[in-house]
Structure formats: structure tokens, C-alpha cells
Design a protein around this nucleic acid. Sequence first.
DNA 1: TCGAAGTGCAACCCTTGGTTGCACATCAAG
DNA 2: CTTGATGTGCAACCAAGGGTTGCACTTCGA
Lengths: 113, 113
Amino acid sequence: MSTAIDDELWSAVGDPTRRRMLDLLLSDGGGTATTLSDRLPVTRQAVAKHLGVLDRVGLVHATASGRERRYEVDEVQLARAVAQLSAVGATWDARLQRIKRIAERIQREKESS
Amino acid sequence: MSTAIDDELWSAVGDPTRRRMLDLLLSDGGGTATTLSDRLPVTRQAVAKHLGVLDRVGLVHATASGRERRYEVDEVQLARAVAQLSAVGATWDARLQRIKRIAERIQREKESS
DNA sequence: TCGAAGTGCAACCCTTGGTTGCACATCAAG
DNA sequence: CTTGATGTGCAACCAAGGGTTGCACTTCGA
């Protein structure tokens, strides 16, 4: 069954800007499109689009108050995404180790010939 | 200091088709654009483009023999990519744990009031 | 030699990250 | 209450990238 990954979560986290946004939201404990765009090299509208994507996949959650629209990270969902990341990493890691082990075996056989 | 990630590697590994290609190349021990496209829901040309991307970032390496062009995974580079993946995961994980701990502390304080 | 198999190149869609521009809501003074 | 400043949302537009089809070019095998 190969990797069996939720591609939506991956592509959400795969974008560099969205990763930086998640970083900022985590360290600042939430923020709005405007406050985020102040600390990013993109416009507020670009940030708003990304927030929409992150909201749709459930990685962030918005609460409107007055004219502001504050976003916060959904820890549970982000934890899920992190788990999937490390799962793929673990899969590849295991295969690479197997390859390395086979290479070492061949090396040993060559040396004892 | 944030994530400090090589975005090229990320975006190379972020694409679902490229991830499946890496999976196939690892389990089959290499392959050509044609053999890969046989086992993927995309055309040979699409696979060829992806192989070009993976080659440019150094995740795979091509060797021409006759009319075939065989690709194999560069284990060292893939290991580097995996390390970067797990690094980001670890960062977020640590922050989430900190958040969780703070939440628990607040909960305790509320109970003892 | 001639067809089949493998590749590369080019043109073309569609999605998406990014931009600018504008209209609308809300807050805070005056 | 009016008015300017701030925060949002929506729409049009551009560029890059994943995907497709079509075609020309090599190479292998009968």
C-alpha cells in the first residue's frame, strides 16, 4: 500500500510560504492576514489565500471579532500532518538502510574473494 | 531561527507524483521514464519532466545505455531530504508539545482556584 | 531494411501562487 | 455623527508548473 498519504495535507504543508505562516502562527500564538503579511515577503491577499487553503484542510481555524479575522493553528491537525511527514520519512529511511546493508554485504563478499 | 530549509528539495519531494516515482525507483531499484509511466496514472512525458526536476536537485541520477535512459535514486541526497523533512517535523512537534504543556498548566491552575 | 520501442522537443490547457485595484465594514477621534 | 484610518473580501490579471497530445529522431531486432 505504499505511502498512503493524504495529498491535501502534504501540498498544504509543502508550500514554503504556508510553512513560514505556520511557523509565525505557532510562535506568535495566532494572527491575522495583515499581521502575517507584515512579516512575510508577500501581500496580504496572498496570505489570505493561503489562510483559506490552510483553513479548508483544517490546519488553522478562524474566529471573527469586529473587523478583524484572527487565525490560530489547530494543534491536533498539525500533529496529524507532522505524523504523516515522519511516516514517509521513516519509510524512505528504512529502504535506504536496507540498500545500505545490501551494499555492505556485497562489499564484504568482494573482500573475501 | 525558523526552519532554514532548502525549498528546492522540499518542492521536489512535495509533489505527490514525484513521491510515488521515488517510491517506485526505490522498490524497483531504478527505472526509465517509460517503465515508470506504465505504473503511474500519467503520461511518459509528464514522468520525464519530473525526472528532470529530480535530476536537477540531485535526488536521482541518469545513465544512458543504448536507446534507454535509466534513472536511479541518489541515496545520499534522498537521505539529506529525509533529514530536512524530519527536522521541520521535529520543530513543529516541539512547539506543539510546549503548547500542550502550557495548556495543561493553565488547566491545573484553573482547577486549584 | 524496416517496423517497433524508447526518447526528446514543442505547443497547448488548467491550476495555483502572486500581484494590483477597488468596494465594503468597522473603529476611533473630531 | 461624520470622517479618516484600518482590516477584509472580491475580481481581474500574470507567470510558473503539472499534465496532455503530436511529431521527429535514434536504436534495437527480425
